[in-house]
Amino acid sequence: MTWRARLTQIGVALAPIGLTLVMTMFILLLAGADPFEAYGNILSGAFESPKKIADIAVAMVPLLLCSAGMLVTFAAGLWNIGVEGQMIAGALMTTWLVESLTAPAGVILPLSVVAGLIGGALWGLLVGLIRTYGGVNEIFAGLGMNFVASALTNYLIFGPWRPPDGATMSGTDPFPPSAWMPLLGTTRASLVSILLSVIALVGVWLVLRGTYWGLKLRAIGRNIRAAQRLGVSTHRNMILAFIVCGALAGLAGSLQTTAVYRRLIPQISGGYGYLSQLVVLLSGLRAEWVPLVVFFFSAVQVGSPRLELRMQLDSSMGGILQAGIVLFFLLVRGFRERWRAPERPKEE
């Protein structure tokens, strides 16, 4: 590779970051705020203490799990926007288990993980069925099921699982200590959660790269008709992809209840399902890049509430940074392809 090509490559990688900074700088100035003070606050809010860094790890867990799941559906060319609902379903199943079973931690915690997997898988199955046999585009199938899941959560919190002294938006009563995932020291991070999310991502990476099923999914994603002609059962494999993705998202939801909130709250999915769509897009659908992107997104997530505390700005600046960088990543990629297309017809 020549120096020039290498420089171009670095430029292309940095351009989305630069463009996002320019855009947000402009918006911050418009809001009458000092951009550098804002960025500084986000950085210090994310990294100033070991506790904050542990918080980044806490935010990384659901993003890693959901992104891992979504790599599976994306491989099959499916937009699983229903990850949010699948997270919720996992959280609901886990809460149901905790509410109905009294057992020592050694029993209930492993079961809670299984419950989360099952809950999410069921919700994924539903989206898959609506997509394949109902003929409804998976974006609307997933979205509809997200709203149903969140309505169900509210119903349960204000109905059957209402705390004795009245239901509020802060959720159910806390779980009994036997259903608390152990945490690392005085932080909010759980080693079990971190390990599970790493295993999930590595597992998905291996399955997509090295198994026959992964190959079949990619065949469906590339050209569904051709895959069908070659004898791949497209409906079955698509549904299976939704189930796997749903199970991983459900696990994320389950861990949000047992390791983070230790109860069921109305917004248990916290937008992580939508955010992980951005993660996967920014990773270029490649598992290798997911950890880095997830780390960046989580740092922004942990750091941006400080804008509200210190500068009276809305913390949605965090979301603008995250979505902005993905938008510019897509646009810059398009520019590069357009720019170099004529000179290099078929290489690589």
Binding site: I27, Y274, D314, S316, M317, G318, G319, I320, A323, L327
Partner: peptide, 9 residues
């Protein structure tokens, strides 16, 4: 997602 956050900010 971007426009929703922009509208809030």
């Amino acid at each position: 997602l971007l426009c929703a956050d922009l509208s809030s900010f």
